[in-house]
Design a protein around this nucleic acid. Structure first.
Lengths: 354, 354
DNA sequence: GTTCTGAAAGAAAACGTTTTCGTGAGGGAG
DNA sequence: CTCCCTCACGAAAACGTTTTCTTTCAGAAC
């Protein structure tokens, strides 16, 4: 049951057993074999708690996400776990559910378990929790919003790249009246996406008047509501890009309910590429922000920070590309060079060059 | 940083600090206050590893799921975590990804961390891992497939109840040619669902000939393939119930692609009620098997087993009801008393009584 | 005033490891 | 043959707690 039992049966000291397990080279091969044999037949597994008590390293990373039930996160959790086990790390998962009580509780739990680092993958900055961890010098990695401090790494998302691809894809399909359904604008990541959209449009000389810029909330209901607005416009957009996939799915639903067919009458593109984007009808063209990649980077950030001997003045910075993945929710703009079919032939205000 | 620091500053022994933290009543109120004050201002959090090393209880439960990215599981994870934190438990999540290597590795990890119990929420019996945990006398809870042994609890699912509701709902809508797309039949839970379907049909005097019983694999692709078969039948079913929601979503997709409209031409009902069932178009009528409830029961099973002083000969048994939730994917059977619209008016072979 | 009782606090053991330090044996160099 | 070094191993300290066992001290009983 404990190392003592193994030691007794192998007729060695517990030190030798420990050395054997940890592969310390100074133990004679023959002895090592004997010890291993006893370990096997006893089915002995070392007690990690005792181990990390003395070593000072728990081999646990914390992972804080907004909510596991949000389809964006499971892939991250899975990816993070995958790499963690490969490196003999355990992961403590926590979802804040947007509740700051829970958030601080979960931070406390992690500190009590003496995690070696924490990945905070939650859109919407939670400044409060930071203090506690920071002051304890726990390596941290944020996505998009971390401060530049020692032991704090950051994963930057290159929103523009993918969104630009989306916009240019749409433009190539002769769309010029392109709307954008944003996320809640107080979210940094949502704001960044909207800005990227605007910039991408601007780059190719397309203007977007304010009525084509509507604020959603990153849920399906938000997408539905926003799409209602858009479809009620005198000049309907022929394409709409959404700040995330759930919004896009809502938009598709509303289109369907109003008999506007995607992609023939209107093209829709999402953002995130959650798994469900493939399962929706029609499969959603969307900008991928690889969740697996985020997980990989987050782990790498923590891991290198743990290995580091001399504390660097600031953590590492990583950048994640986004890129368009084509599926079936986009198509050529409707032929009359203007809006969806049920609209009166009242010409749009946007000059087109082609 | 450690309890010693607190003791020194409060000018007491570490024993007193420990007692204060654990609320042992023999410490004088005044002293207690003094100690707490120091704890606060030091921001001291006890080291859980040291704690559980001596107490012998880790206050960690393991949770083994098939794969977090399967939309069925996140709700379970979330639910389990919710209750766990309420009870001051931590949870170690692991997904086997149907890989027995990973499975046994994860069991090992859990044993090394000395979990107080493990919930195995994975359809598809994994006999192998059981041995290891069982022999170590770790409380276990299975869903549907656990053996009746000491310290092993079981959550039984009442498949029949919900599926019967579904079948009767369909019958009430004048459907009589009802097909069933099963899951992989080597899965116990899949088999049980099919049996429940057959029984429910039988109860109301409906027969189901073999061509209306097709085997899927619990994925969307499986649903698509199965639906292809069904739609190619000389007499199409007017309704199909599926062994899980992903299958149903696949079936809906294939219907859509063939221009068969749900629910007007064909009714579809799913099983599980994963979150996405609401988001699909049209929203899926399905049999709910509450994931939150499963999580709740699993935790309760483990928790009561941990509390138990005298080992019972067998663990507890719980039963989870299933029940139909109506949404938009079912409707009256098409009027011609027979199959979907695009089919030649070649009358079916099933006598109908109404 | 002495002894006894009980409450409150401290000392120390224990939990299962890793790791430092020490020790004995074996072997090479002189 | 002796000395010394190296190598393999064991003894014991340390990690941060909880808990058992002691000790101390105040007050009650006589």
């Amino acid at each position: 049951m404990s190392i003592h039992e193994v030691a007794k049966r192998a007729k060695v000291s517990i030190a030798t057993v420990s050395r054997t397990i940890n592969g310390v080279p100074t133990v004679a091969p023959q002895l090592s074999r004997r010890v291993w044999k006893v370990i096997e037949e006893l089915g002995y597994y070392p007690n990690t708690q005792a181990r990390s008590l003395v070593s000072g390293r728990s081999r646990i990373f914390g992972l804080i996400v907004s909510e596991i039930t949000n389809p964006f996160f499971p892939e991250i959790v899975q990816g993070f776990e995958d790499i963690a086990v490969q490196h003999d790390y355990e992961v403590l998962i926590t979802s804040t559910v947007h509740d700051s009580k829970r958030m601080s509780l979960s931070v406390r739990r992690m500190i009590e378990r003496r995690v070696d680092g924490v990945a905070i993958v939650t859109f919407g900055m939670e400044e409060a929790l930071l203090e506690n961890l920071k002051s304890r010098n726990v390596p941290l990695v944020f996505i998009d919003v971390g401060p530049s401090l020692s032991r704090i790494s950051n994963i930057k998302i290159d929103y523009l790249h993918g969104i630009r691809q989306a916009v240019q894809h749409l433009a190539a399909l002769r769309h010029s009246t392109i709307a954008f359904i944003s996320g809640p604008l107080m979210l940094r990541s949502a704001l960044a996406r909207q800005r990227a959209f605007l910039q991408a449009m601007n780059e190719i000389g397309l203007t977007v008047s304010p009525e084509y810029l509507v604020e959603g909330n990153h849920t399906m209901d938000g997408g539905i509501a926003a799409m209602k607005e858009l479809l009620a416009l005198p000049v309907r957009p022929t394409a709409v890009v959404c700040s995330n996939d759930m919004t896009a799915i809502g938009a598709m639903r509303e289109s369907y309910d109003q008999g506007v067919v995607v992609p023939d009458d209107i093209s829709i593109v999402g953002f995130d590429d959650i798994r469900f984007a493939q399962f929706v009808t029609p499969p959603l063209t969307t900008v991928r922000m690889s969740q697996t990649e985020i997980a990989r980077m987050a782990f790498a950030a923590l891991f290198t920070e743990v290995q580091r001997k001399s504390p660097a003045p600031t953590g590492n910075e990583y950048t994640l590309m986004t890129s368009l993945v084509l599926r079936k929710s986009t198509a050529m703009a409707p032929n009359d060079s203007q809006s969806a079919r049920t609209v009166r032939p009242n010409r749009g205000t946007h000059a087109e060059t082609d």
